[in-house]
Write a protein that binds this DNA or RNA. Structure first.
Lengths: 152, 152
DNA sequence: CTACTGTTCTATAATAAATAGAACAATAAG
DNA sequence: CTTATTGTTCTATTTATTATAGAACAGTAG
């Protein structure tokens, strides 16, 4: 009877929002938890599970669901904000934001990371057309989103 | 006249091998030094600057040229060995090895990293065909290596 | 006002990265 | 055989990152 006064309606918050199913943490991984959270949210955006202005659960909620510290979630959200993927406001919380190329100051970094990854494939002897094929196949699994006309 | 007894012929080693020009370290980067060394050697293999059985300078030589500790270089070399990119033997030193797909136990990991990177592009609103085009253009800059027939 | 949310602050422990020095072990070369 | 080179192994220290923890602050929707 240790955790008795928990599980009131106070623990749920932000329209009783549960942590989405696409968020899965691998605790044994060498990838930091905050990085995993960040990557999976970006992936969820690409997969269409999250759209522009989609709400994300509160940091304390996610932390509670995974049994981790809310500061870890906060770090992921803050990173997403600095990258332009979400907006953060108090009380309202965390919302997905349509990141534009304008925000993408690290597009050179993206290209560099892609180049490093492709080089690794080449150094492995992977055929170039196979890699391109893999990229096309992977991209085809993402829904083809319509860019709204009011995007500026 | 502090470093006077240095710069003898003793400091140079392994056929008087200098650190190759393709190795450049960015000290301000958030990428660890050993990871940078690893990435650039893989890149050099893909770019054809290093071939099968190409020699790499000794760990102490690279460390000396960059003013870093040789343990850091050792860590990079050991990582490359575990990934199958080089062979390490005492006295002979470090040599590039033709890594096969058989060594590539982390090919799923490669695909996962590629997926994460492509998803980031999609989430940014980058056009899919532009990304594919970028990959093709990047790959075309790598020399098209002939896989020797005696590869088993 | 109240409750919820992100924000900021300090603090601690665990892990990783980088440095440092010493010694060991295999082996090519003389 | 001897020597020098090179990777390997060991302990140790410093610094940075990661994750946790608790407390308090500050907007803001209801």
């Amino acid at each position: 009877m240790a955790k008795n006064d928990v599980m009131n309606k106070k623990t749920v918050s932000k329209q009783n929002m549960k942590t989405p199913a696409f968020l899965l943490l691998e605790f044994g991984s060498e990838t930091p938890l905050y990085q995993q959270i960040r990557d999976q949210i970006v992936l969820a955006i690409a997969e269409g599970h999250l759209h522009d202005e989609s709400p994300l659960p509160a940091t304390r909620q996610v932390a509670s669901d995974f049994g981790i510290n809310f500061h870890t979630v906060n770090k992921a959200y803050d990173l997403l904000r600095r990258e332009g993927f979400v907006t953060l406001t108090r009380k309202k919380g965390c919302f997905v934001r349509r990141a534009t190329e304008r925000d993408f100051r690290r597009i050179e970094d993206w290209g560099e990371r892609m180049r490093t990854l492709l080089a690794e494939g080449v150094a492995r002897g992977l055929a170039e057309d196979k890699m391109v094929k893999f990229c096309k196949a992977t991209l085809s699994l993402f829904p083809h989103l319509e860019i709204p006309a009011n995007a500026k």
